[in-house]
């Protein structure tokens, strides 16, 4: 097992190095995606299935789609341009600096390994297990995210919503974006896959209460399904009324969260302090709305601007000749 961990760690370092030093953007993107894949394996080795799920959904799927779409929007000449001039990465100054950082990292790792004996029970695992029964859920990660430290999660969702607001304030995007469907195979496959995406997304959401899963991976899979629909040439007409619906869906996670907190406060429990008998249901409600909102927000971030409401193009999902 130790050998496996060593290979994994080495590959991760090599990939990061490639990712940062490779001379064209496309290679950097692929290296970064490979890094995301291996990172999920590393999380599995660290016995953190929740983070592995999130990394699988966000790190490999969404980031890949986002980066490739971004590359496609850059002018062609720019993607081929070296990120760093060829001359750099050699010479005594470079090796001095790199050597210093390597030495520092090695010392840090050595200190960590030697102090390892003192860390008998890492973190708060013990106290958490003791109080898991009163959290209303069986999965300790969900208990922390949505009960014991729910304020942190609330703030995370608020940050995500703020990011969407900033993205929308940058202006309108062409909606639908440019459609070039390379083959009729793609819409067919997507039609087949979308129900599976939805099934997995909602099952991840549902099982968050008793097993790894929950709002973030579920939302990410939901967003991935939306991105796949967009990539396969689906066009959407958004009426002003649909637009207001969209705004509600985007903010539903935060709204439900804050409403739950405030109404608990009004009932005399304190902000987001759940009474034990309702805790399970409240967490389910918050998690479900947060999951759908997170999916919508990630999709909105992928689109990258406020969708233009004006009917810019007739509903025409057929491929345009190149």
């Amino acid at each position: 097992m130790a050998v496996f961990d060593l290979i994994l760690g080495l590959l991760l370092v090599i990939l990061v190095r490639k990712c940062l030093s490779i001379t064209d953007m496309f290679g950097a993107v692929i290296s970064f995606m490979a890094f995301g894949l291996l990172m999920a394996v590393a999380w599995v080795r660290l016995e953190a299935p929740d983070i592995a799920l999130a990394e699988a959904a966000i790190g490999s799927g969404l980031t890949g789609a986002l980066l490739f779409s971004t590359l496609g929007r850059l002018p062609h000449s720019e993607t081929r341009q070296p990120l760093v001039p060829r001359g750099s990465g050699s010479g005594p100054g470079y090796w001095l600096v790199t050597g210093f950082w390597w030495a520092a990292a090695m010392v840090l790792i050595a200190t960590f390994v030697f102090s390892f004996q003192e860390l008998q029970t890492p973190g708060l695992g013990g106290p958490l297990q003791e109080r898991l029964a009163e959290s209303g859920v069986l999965n300790p990660v969900t208990a922390v995210l949505l009960n014991f430290r729910s304020l942190d999660t609330l703030m995370e969702i608020a940050v995500l919503l703020a990011a969407v607001v900033v993205a929308w304030s940058m202006g309108y995007v062409d909606w639908p974006a440019r459609q070039t469907i390379p083959s009729p195979l793609l819409p067919g496959v997507v039609r087949l896959l979308t129900p599976v995406f939805l099934l997995v997304a909602f099952s991840l959401l549902w099982r968050g209460s008793h097993a790894p899963g929950g709002a973030f991976p579920g939302g990410a899979v939901l967003a991935a399904s939306g991105i796949l629909l967009l990539l396969s040439g689906m066009t959407v007409q958004i009426s002003p009324r649909g637009m207001s619906w969209l705004r509600w869906v985007l903010s539903a996670g935060l709204l439900v969260f804050v409403l739950a907190g405030v109404s608990l406060m009004a009932a005399g429990f304190g902000f987001l302090v759940y009474p034990e008998q309702w805790a399970g249901n409240l967490i389910l409600l918050i998690e479900a709305s947060a999951g759908v909102s997170i999916g919508a927000m990630l999709l909105a971030l992928y689109v990258g601007g406020e969708p233009d409401m004006a009917p810019s193009q007739p509903n025409n999902p057929v491929s345009r000749p190149q």
């Binding site: 390379p182 083959s183 195979l185 793609l186 496959v189 087949l192 896959l193």
Partner: peptide, 9 residues
């Protein structure tokens, strides 16, 4: 499905 789609595309 992913492999077949990717290869074909």
């Amino acid at each position: 499905v992913a492999a077949a789609t990717g290869a074909s595309l």
